[in-house]
């Protein structure tokens, strides 16, 4: 790991490169994650409503965003979107300076792709609840929206915490895709360091360690979250165990 402390051409250290990469990874992860959860929960719930058009729309969403590779989706957001929208908007998008020019498309791609996966988990969670839950909510006079917000989703989300943790970890790993459109996250920086110093092992080992550390923290947090939200008197599936 010596190399991290060597000087770069610009009087910084390689460690600072890696740390900068870490910041971008975490930022990308967080923002995409929020987007993905928001959309994913909505779409997942939409797949279970009684209103058919909404169900179909949700089904289409999942179908499309799950079955196109993430890399392709990111490229579509970065390269194709500015071309197919009205010229004025397209031009203003192209004006955005890097690295943000890479960041926003990456968020869009990661967020919508992960949302489709989360939607499926949420749908499975809601469907695993007994039909009686909805009937009881109906009988009490709750609207559909209230039913989902207050009754179905709180239970479904608890059930799916292990798989949602898995998705969060997956999202972290997928942030590396952003390097293909020029975002200098951890893996990109590691490759840069390799190119400059030829210390291949050190460079990639540092990146590996970083990912492992973040994953470790994620698991701890997930464990605490599951404990915090556990419903007394039920035994949930155990949290994602490696």
């Amino acid at each position: 790991m010596q190399v991290l402390f060597d000087q770069t051409a610009e009087r910084g250290t390689y460690l600072s490169w890696l740390m900068s990469g870490l910041c971008w990874t975490l930022l990308l992860w967080f923002v995409s994650g929020v987007l993905a959860f928001a959309i994913g929960i909505t779409v997942g719930a939409a797949r279970t409503v009684r209103y058919l058009p909404l169900r179909i729309a949700a089904r289409l969403y999942v179908q499309v965003f799950r079955n196109v590779p993430l890399l392709v989706q990111v490229f579509l957001w970065y390269f194709v979107l500015p071309e197919v929208i009205p010229t004025a908007w397209g031009n203003s998008i192209k004006q955005i300076a890097p690295p943000w020019a890479s960041f926003y498309p990456a968020v869009a791609g990661l967020g919508l792709y992960t949302a489709s996966r989360i939607a499926e988990q949420v749908r499975a969670g809601i469907n695993s609840l007994s039909e009686g839950q909805r009937k009881a909510a109906d009988a009490l006079g709750l609207t559909a929206f209230q039913t989902y917000l207050l009754i179905l989703l709180p239970q479904a989300l608890r059930i799916t915490i292990p798989t949602l943790t898995s998705e969060a970890l997956g999202l972290l790993k997928n942030t590396s895709v952003a390097l293909t459109i020029g975002l200098l996250e951890i893996t990109a920086r590691a490759e840069q360091i390799n190119e400059f110093t030829f210390r291949t092992f050190d460079a990639f080992a540092s990146a590996t360690v970083l990912y492992l550390l973040i994953a470790l923290v994620l698991h701890q947090v997930a464990f605490q979250v599951e404990r915090m939200f556990q419903i007394p008197g039920t035994s949930q599936n155990t949290t994602f165990r490696k």
Partner: peptide, 14 residues
């Protein structure tokens, strides 16, 4: 626990 891209780099170079 690590991204596929990173694994690809590992193997490709190492």
């Amino acid at each position: 626990s690590i991204p596929l891209i990173l694994v690809l780099f590992w193997f490709f170079f190492l």
